[in-house]
């Protein structure tokens, strides 16, 4: 399951053979920046943002690019959106090469790069969409119909946002308008960079649900970045775990979870004292964590087979005169997977 297939594309293969709509082959990008030192002196600094990234996204699939801050998610999106040149490597979107055929790529994609910026503040939501629709060369009549449709789809009409100036928008409205712009020309490919960043649960949920519908009902191919594991788990069909410019793991959310050692977590809340920890260590558990709040202990123990030890553990705690307030056995979350890989590289 580890990602070893770095050179996916042979020269000239545009990757369309197997219905791969987005193909990235060994993308490398190093930013050159200057670090200021005093008034005139500057020191050249290199930031290796991508160290050879390869992946494919197939038609109708939502692939999540999941990684912490600075992992290289935005850099990847920008290269695919023809807004940044890679130092080496190739990428194709909808059969067009991102460096050699940028206009073909631009016609095929809808992009959303940030939630809170990217529109003209003095224009209303509708006027903004009309403006970008014109830059995309959309026919006026088609454009107006499409805008009406999208305003309904994203519930901007219900929010009364259609004829309000963008500068008065809430973050949730801005995100919806951003997605509406990405969908304006009904492109086959969507590149969405953290589209739910900072949104409240109801706006995030509507965007996530819409993204799933767009892929699974309308067959759009979607690359979706996030640093939120919970989100990646519920939105994406497949997840690429990216860290420090490399893809460190790849698979469906379930597959990724199965990649880490099969530990379960016993989570107990106990009324007692220091004695609890002695009991735990006397039973030979190695991976545990105890947090105290007055006489309440929150205990987390990682074990492979909780069913083998749970009976004995409860007996000892109760016999020592402590009181168990709650008990849960938890599956590892994607967050655990994520921390596991983040710590490994």
């Amino acid at each position: 399951m580890y990602f070893t297939d770095t050179k996916i594309c042979i020269d000239g293969d545009n990757g369309l053979g197997k219905d791969a709509v987005i193909v990235a082959a060994d993308l490398v990008k190093t930013y050159k920046t200057k670090k200021r030192k005093g008034l005139f002196r500057g020191e050249k600094k290199l930031v290796e943002a991508l160290k050879g990234i390869s992946f494919k996204v197939y038609r109708g699939e939502i692939v999540g690019l999941l990684g912490p801050n600075g992992a290289g998610k935005t850099t990847t999106i920008k290269i695919l959106a023809t807004l940044l040149l890679p130092d080496s490597g190739d990428a194709w979107v909808n059969g067009y090469h991102v460096v050699k055929q940028p206009f073909g790529v631009r016609k095929s994609i809808g992009i959303m790069l940030t939630v809170e910026r990217g529109f003209y503040g003095k224009l209303t939501g509708r006027e903004n969409l009309e403006y970008f629709g014109a830059l995309y060369g959309l026919d006026r009549r088609y454009m107006e119909e499409r805008i009406d449709y999208l305003m309904k789809l994203l519930e901007l009409d219900k929010l009364g946002a259609v004829d309000r100036m963008f500068e008065e928008y809430s973050l949730g409205m801005k995100a919806r308008l951003g997605l509406a712009r990405a969908l304006l020309k009904d492109p086959p490919v969507l590149l969405l960079d953290e589209p739910t960043l900072g949104l409240d649960p109801s706006s995030s949920r509507m965007i996530r649900e819409l993204v799933r519908k767009l892929a699974h009902r309308e067959g759009k191919t979607i690359l979706y970045t996030t640093h939120n594991m919970f989100e990646a788990e519920i939105v994406c069909d497949r997840i690429l775990l990216i860290n420090k410019g490399r893809i460190v793991a790849e698979g469906s959310p379930e597959q990724l979870k199965s990649l880490i050692p099969k530990l379960r977590i016993i989570n107990m809340v106990i009324r007692g004292g220091k004695g609890v920890e002695e009991i735990v260590s006397s039973m030979g558990f190695e991976k545990y964590e105890a947090k105290y709040e007055d006489t309440i202990v929150n205990l987390k123990i990682s074990v492979e087979k909780p069913e083998d030890v749970l009976g004995e553990l409860i007996r000892r705690i109760v016999n020592a005169g402590h009181e168990i307030i709650s008990l849960k056995v938890e599956e590892p979350t994607l967050e655990d997977v994520f921390l596991y890989y983040a710590s490994k590289t």
Binding site: R106, G118, A134, L135
Partner: peptide, 18 residues
């Protein structure tokens, strides 16, 4: 400054017209 540049550059209108 206001963040619309990427969307303008990614548009396909002929630049002379624009």
């Amino acid at each position: 400054w206001i963040g619309t540049l990427p969307y303008v550059i990614a548009s396909h209108i002929p630049r002379l017209y624009h």
